[in-house]
Design a protein around this nucleic acid. Structure first.
Lengths: 234, 234
DNA sequence: TGCCGACTTCTTGTCGACAATAAAAATACA
DNA sequence: TGTATTTTTATTGTCGACAAGAAGTCGGCA
């Protein structure tokens, strides 16, 4: 993976966004696993840029909490904070609910179309058993809903939470089973209907249940007892 | 105000935090009003630092939305988005409620002490009719509550919202009257009691009412009809 | 006089080099 | 042989200078 991203024709100031987005994706997709050291010089070589714009991108990532800089020493990809997981679940659930409620209230026809596109993509990922695709299209689906809700503060926080969720899910994605995703498709469909009908109460309860599903799923992965040698005779 | 902040003994890497915090405060306190141009060279002179660390601080501020960079042209203090005010009020109210609820559930004795300190400071500002002090101690009071709730996501968002609120309030602070702040002191006191009693429902409804108060106050300032020449004979 | 284009200037974006700091390695000592 | 101390090394933080882009200025042309 040492191919230098050779975009010789850097439009002035475009490089830093490229670096930012590239790294951001690689962090969320766990190509750069938590704890990975981030070497400025190395990135400088890779993107054929000076260290200055690289640094700028890193500062942005640090502001989002995606990387952690140990002053004067090193900067690493932030670890997933398992101790803070309850907080994460609480905030995630609240954002699921709030954004879906607002979508039911504020959506336009264009929003519905956008949501349907994402739902379709999610469905395809499910039929293809493309677990990675499922994780990211599920995120896009809910962000589309959030955007229909028209509240940038919620969109921003929700995006951060969902992306953090993507990191966690990728850690466990091997154990994805088949029945749950199918169920999600149905739940998504119901949510879309509730939004279209502007039924806030139903949108809320569906979002709440959906959040519980997902939180429960993550919880079960994390607490899964995989001590396969526990039962052996001693 | 052209006195150069002469901290000759910069501990390596401390300078950028100083710049960040100083500018952040000046923006929130409207010493740098919305739309003010931010000149890197000028800041470089003022803080006796090279443009590089200045730039780093600016990137951080931009990530928080406090400044806006027009690419290749200029960077200015972000304008207050009056069109987005409904979103702001909605998010603010939600955060008031959520953080107060969580505080009722999760607080420790130390948290209560910290909250009381801020409440006292707010009271003093009220008795002194120190409007600017009221605005900032009120913020600190609610952040203390949020911290007692132990959810960093909410603390972060709430802090951003309250700081944005400080900017808005400062725009209108001249019209602060006397009765409202006194009322706030009482409401704060009730909130503390509800938190101590771990009465989530009451904490919620108090927070909700308190939020409505403040939102209503801001709204009334903004929509206040101050066309003093409207009635003149023509 | 009014509009279009080259030029100037000012600010931002980028670069390569240097300084400081902390970890790691090497050395001295008990 | 183990520990404390010095030296080395690698990486970050900072600097001054240069390049590029955009707004404003000036001059030429219809």
């Amino acid at each position: 993976m040492d191919e230098t991203e050779k975009l010789q024709t850097h439009r002035r100031g475009s490089g830093v966004s490229t670096v930012y987005e590239t790294l951001r994706n690689e962090i969320i997709e766990l190509k750069l696993p938590p704890g990975s050291p981030i070497d400025e010089q190395q990135l400088s070589d890779r993107f054929a840029l000076s260290r200055t714009p690289i640094r700028e991108a890193l500062v942005r990532l640090a502001a989002e909490g995606l990387i952690t800089t140990l002053t004067n020493r090193a900067t690493i990809v932030s670890n997933i904070d398992f101790l803070g997981l309850p907080e994460f679940f609480d905030a995630l659930t609240l954002m699921y609910r709030v954004t879906t409620r607002l979508a039911a209230t504020n959506h336009t026809e264009g929003d519905i179309a956008a949501i349907r596109v994402q739902q379709k993509a999610f469905e395809i990922a499910v039929t293809n058993r493309d677990v990675l695709g499922m994780i990211s299209t599920n995120r896009d689906f809910h962000i589309a809903i959030a955007q229909a809700g028209r509240n940038r503060y919620y969109v921003e926080l929700f995006t951060r939470l969902l992306d953090e969720g993507r990191r966690i899910l990728r850690l466990y994605y091997s154990s994805f089973n088949d029945v749950l995703p199918r169920q999600y498709v149905g739940e998504h469909e119901e949510m879309i209907q509730a939004i279209i009908n502007r039924d806030v109460a139903r949108a809320d309860s569906l979002a709440s249940a959906h959040a519980d599903q997902i939180v429960g799923q993550i919880r079960s992965y994390i607490t899964a007892d995989s001590r396969q040698t526990a039962g052996l005779a001693l």
